[in-house]
Design a protein around this nucleic acid. Structure first.
Length: 484
RNA sequence: GGCGCUAUCGUCUAGUGGCCUAGGACGUCGCCCUCUCAAGGCGAAAACACGGGUUCGACUCCCGUUAGCGCUACCA
């Protein structure tokens, strides 16, 4: 097979939002396809009508798009192996399952869910493995046709061969084998006529010419069923790669309850897609050297299945935050400006009050201090409005009885400046301190408090030159009044 | 319970028999820088689950134990 012939797919079921684990699976498929010059396909596995969620498909597609994982074939964009939505392929599965029944690789089962349930209970009580007892395998052709003509509902089950060992190899895990005794006669077609995952997945992967099945480890145990199906159809078996699971901090499979799992949640919290993708890529994969920060393009170039590791990875938000900081820092000013404006609108701050040059200087001042775009307003609200209150802790530490006097003198000094620069403010402050016979710090700290309301932030003189002389003087006066 | 997968610092990981006194990153702590907070620099604490083999030599190979996780549906 030529590298360019690689075809992989991401096959989510539309039961809600895209999960970060799903994003990771999608990403690895995408990266593998891009890296090998192959095709990345999106297929919707909507064979469970009970769990279908309205709008989930659209949401999946838009989230994938947001993350930058454009697919080559799939819903909306189409492709020559469609349709790419399983509910639109029902006739295909029906035809194939007929073939299986013909050849004896599958059989109809008329057992009711209730009977199955009591059977299972019985088996559990006897400490046996829950497994279909093949009652319907022993039905005569006459019984079967009379059941059918009587309109009895039925499912179609896979006839698992006895006494064989099913082996397959997995790129990530090596050789894996299961005894067929352990494999249940899996339902292939449900009584509502829809296929189960197992059937639909194999049929579609074959017809869509999928070369590599890259999916989560939770599928490893059902892979023997799939292998059996490929054999029953006489089809080539694709290469399997079962990815390690994403875990909660307590090491269980990543789930809601223990934090956010929807990609959308992270997007809304202000995470950059670059950071999320970078982070999730590093969960289970690494380039083998000591780099940590990757663009999507770099990942496409570097990714290989051989470097994917076997053990589950805890989704650790601390590192994601750091990566967000790193990626935000790398963004050009113009892009941060656009994001900042969007954020200001979102928090109802009148954007037109600030020109681009002003916002750009805020960005320059805060670059090293923001992890998220929202931090511009949360960590430095004083660039967008005069302080409404003063941090009590800082007041206690920095505001002395004589501060008001010093600041009045400073305000007078500042007022005399014309069109001051950052250095002019600094020089003026030094002059004031000297004539007062106090240290610079005796003025600097109360001044910072006055103009910002807090005790931390960019260089004080940067702040002053950004907000300007008038505003600075005004804020000093307010603080002096407020703090006496 | 059965079957399967996995097992290096708190977390993500490097490591494919000697380069390991086990490396990097996040986080934590300390120092430097400094008007504060960051950023940056320097430094520290922190791991090969356990027990047997194999070998001149095991983090690396094999077996077992233990632990965790996954699967065990007419869900995916």
């Amino acid at each position: 097979m030529n590298p360019g012939d690689v075809r992989v797919r991401f096959a989510p079921s539309p039961t809600g939002f895209l999960h970060v684990g799903g994003l990771r699976t999608a990403l690895f498929n995408y990266l593998f396809a891009r890296n090998s010059g192959g095709k990345f396909i999106l297929r919707i596995e909507d064979t469970d009508r009970a769990r279908f969620v309205e709008g989930a498909v659209e949401n999946l597609i838009s989230t994938l798009k947001w993350a930058g994982l454009e697919y080559d074939e799939g819903p909306v964009v189409g492709g020559e192996y469609g349709p790419y939505i399983q509910s639109e392929r029902l006739d295909i599965y029906g035809k194939h399952v007929e073939m299986l029944i013909e050849s004896g690789a599958a059989y109809r089962c008329f057992c009711t869910p209730e009977r199955l349930e009591t059977m299972r209970k019985e088996q559990e009580k006897k400490k046996l493995q829950p497994k279909y007892d093949r009652t319907c395998l022993r039905l005569s052709p006459e019984e079967i046709s009379s059941n059918i003509s009587a309109g009895k509902p039925f499912v179609v089950r896979l006839r698992v061969p006895d006494d064989t060992v099913i082996k397959f190899s997995d790129v990530i895990r090596g050789e894996v084998e299961f005894s067929s005794e352990r494999v249940d006669d899996q339902v292939l077609i449900k009584s509502d006529g829809y296929p189960t995952y197992h059937l639909a997945n194999v049929v579609d992967d074959h017809h869509m010419r999928i070369t590599h099945v890259i999916r989560g480890e939770e599928w490893l145990s059902s892979t023997p069923k799939h292998v059996l199906l490929y054999r029953a159809f006489g089809w080539d078996i694709p290469t399997f790669a079962h990815l390690p699971l994403l875990l909660n901090p307590d090491k269980s499979k990543l789930s809601k309850r223990q934090g956010d799992v929807a990609v959308e949640d992270y997007k809304e919290k202000g995470y950059l897609k670059e950071a999320l993708v970078n982070f999730v890529a590093l969960l289970g994969w690494n380039p083998g050297d000591e780099r940590e920060i990757f663009s999507i393009a770099e990942l496409e170039k570097e990714f290989s299945l051989e470097k994917v590791n076997k053990s589950g990875a805890v989704f650790n938000v601390e590192k994601l935050n750091w990566l967000n900081f790193q990626h935000l820092r790398k963004k050009p000013d113009a892009m941060v400006l656009a994001m900042l404006k969007e954020h200001l609108m979102k928090v109802s701050i009148e954007v037109s009050r600030f020109n681009d040059q002003y916002l750009l200087s805020v960005i320059a001042a805060m670059r090293e201090r923001v992890t998220f775009v929202k931090d511009f307003t949360e960590k430095s609200p004083y660039f967008f409005a005069a302080p409404k209150s003063y941090d009590p802790g800082v007041v206690q530490k920095r505001w002395k009885p004589e501060s008001a006097v010093y600041l009045k003198a400073l305000a007078a000094e500042f007022s005399g400046l014309s069109d001051p620069t950052k250095n002019d403010y600094e020089a003026a402050l030094h002059r004031t301190a000297e004539s007062l016979g106090v240290g610079n710090g005796d003025i600097i700290h109360p001044l910072r408090l006055s103009v910002s309301g807090m005790g931390e932030g960019p260089g004080l003189f940067d702040i002053l030159s950004i907000i300007g002389k008038e505003e600075t003087v005004r804020r000093i006066e307010s603080a002096v009044n407020e703090l006496k």
